[in-house]
């Protein structure tokens, strides 16, 4: 955990989910971006995606600030080893799968919230929240 930097986690926001693409992306009018391209989900260096995640994150900060409090974030990340792993792997497909598995696990555990009408996992909300908070 200690080896993984906050920046690495923030970068994961871009691979979080299709919600970032659909919701954040729509806000940034970048829906023309081809969604089915695996590289697209790599996300880390994708500027429109990062912006989309930040836009979502700003809503998270406004609506669910408790999700992005430092202490809450720390225990949240500690309890999600898939995210720690994703933050360190370089293969975009693996990274994407790990984050999406974690989102799926959140949904399965009922850890989901509605943000501006979108039903999102807490993982993606927190990652986006981090992207906005530490931008």
């Amino acid at each position: 955990m200690s080896k993984v930097t906050r920046r690495a986690f923030i970068g994961l926001a871009g691979v979080a989910t299709v919600a970032v693409v659909g919701y954040g992306g729509a806000m940034l009018a970048c829906r023309g971006v081809p969604r089915h391209n695996p590289d697209f989900f790599a996300g880390l260096d994708d500027e429109p995606l990062r912006q989309a995640a930040q836009e979502v994150g700003r809503r998270v900060l406004a609506e669910y600030p408790e999700l992005v409090e430092d202490r809450a974030l720390k225990s949240f990340l500690a309890a999600r080893p898939r995210l720690a792993e994703a933050a360190t792997v370089s293969c975009p497909d693996t990274r994407r799968r790990l984050v999406q598995d974690q989102c799926g696990a959140d949904f399965a555990a009922g850890e989901a919230r509605v943000l501006d009408g979108w039903v999102m996992s807490e993982t993606e909300l927190r990652l986006c929240g981090m992207a906005a908070k530490y931008a």
């Binding site: 299709v18 989901a112 979108w118 999102m120």
Partner: peptide, 9 residues
């Protein structure tokens, strides 16, 4: 979401 199929608005 749990099935990884996408998201719902």
């Amino acid at each position: 979401g749990e099935a990884g199929l996408g998201r719902v608005k």
